[in-house]
Amino acid sequence: MADKVMDRRIARTRGTLQRALSSLILTKGYDAITVDDICETANVGRSTFYSHFTSKDDLKRRGLDEHLRELLADRRRNAPAPGDLKDRHLAFSLPLFEHARDHLDLYRALAGSRGGGVSLGAIRQIVSDLVREEIADNADRNPGDVIPRDVVVTYVVGAYMALLTWWLDGGAKLPPQRMDGMFRQLATEGIMPPDSEER
């Protein structure tokens, strides 16, 4: 029971620090923020901050990683029963476009700062992991592995990140569903085996 209380306390403290960073990014910009600013906004001491995170970059990276993985896990839990084979491919795409649209100011603040590489790097790593998982889950459909898996991951992730960045830089004017559709149309021929049919 004590472990559960401690886990809740840790989660609450980390959540408070992540919310403090998000609010500061929108008001000050990422580059101007110090660990002291985050601690003051979160009302925690520096030692508490450093018992959870090594730096503001670590706080941002881990917060984004946890948030996006939770979002995608929730999406998977609530997904309809598998039907169309195409709908199961690249399932990360639409939720990430929707999340970026719903938090456009934050995404643009993160990507537009010196720390943008941290944010984009975290998103790239998450997308890479998801594509690797999908390829592993569908390995039986393409046993020949004509194209090496690392090449497929690099191609799909690079294409997704390029589209996401282009879309955000343009103010996210197209709906997430349209971005998802275009990404799928461009990417699926390169990752689905030629003999894959809707079943």
Rank of each mutant, 00 (worst) to 15 (best):
N138I: 00
R141S: 10
D137K: 01
D169W: 03
D169L: 09
D137I: 01
D145H: 15
L186R: 03
D180F: 02
V151S: 13
N138M: 06
V156N: 00
T165Y: 04
I135V: 13
D140F: 10
G181C: 03
T165S: 14
R184Q: 13
L164A: 02
A172T: 06
N138L: 03
D169S: 11
E189P: 14
P175V: 05
K173L: 14
G144V: 06
D195S: 13
T165D: 11
P194Q: 10
R141V: 03
W167K: 06
V151K: 10
D195R: 02
V151L: 13
N142P: 01
I191W: 09
P143W: 08
M179F: 04
P175F: 10
P193Q: 12
M192N: 12
G171E: 06
G181Q: 08
A187I: 09
G181H: 07
E134C: 02
I191M: 15
R149N: 01
D195A: 12
I191E: 09
L163R: 04
G158S: 11
D150T: 05
P194K: 08
T188G: 03
G190C: 11
P148Y: 10
A172L: 08
A136Y: 06
G170M: 08
V152N: 05
L164K: 02
A159D: 00
R178D: 15
V153W: 03
Q185N: 13
L163W: 02
V152Q: 04
G144K: 11
V146I: 11
N138V: 00
P175S: 12
I147K: 08
G171I: 07
A172G: 13
E134G: 09
V131Y: 03
E133W: 01
M161V: 14
Y160P: 02
E133P: 02
R184E: 05
A159R: 10
A187V: 15
V153S: 05
L164I: 10
T154C: 07
N142I: 01
A187N: 02
Q177S: 15
V157L: 06
R184M: 10
G158Y: 06
R184A: 13
Y160D: 01
D169I: 08
G158V: 07
D195C: 05
R132K: 11
L168K: 04
I191P: 09
L163C: 06
E189R: 14
I135P: 00
G181I: 00
P175W: 07
W166L: 12
T165L: 13
G181R: 10
P143A: 09
D145K: 15
Y155L: 14
V156D: 02
V131E: 02
E189T: 14
A159V: 00
A159I: 01
A139L: 08
P148A: 11
D150N: 14
A162Q: 12
R178N: 10
G158N: 05
P148D: 12
V151R: 13
A136F: 05
M179G: 03
P175H: 10
W166N: 12
P193N: 12
D180S: 15
Q177I: 12
A172V: 08
G170H: 09
P193A: 15
Q177Y: 05
G158T: 07
M161D: 10
P193F: 07
T165N: 07
D195M: 07
Q177W: 05
D140T: 13
Y160T: 01
I135C: 04
A187K: 05
D150Y: 03
N142K: 06
T154Y: 09
R149T: 05
G171P: 09
M161E: 14
R149F: 02
D180L: 01
P194W: 04
R132N: 03
G158K: 04
D169C: 07
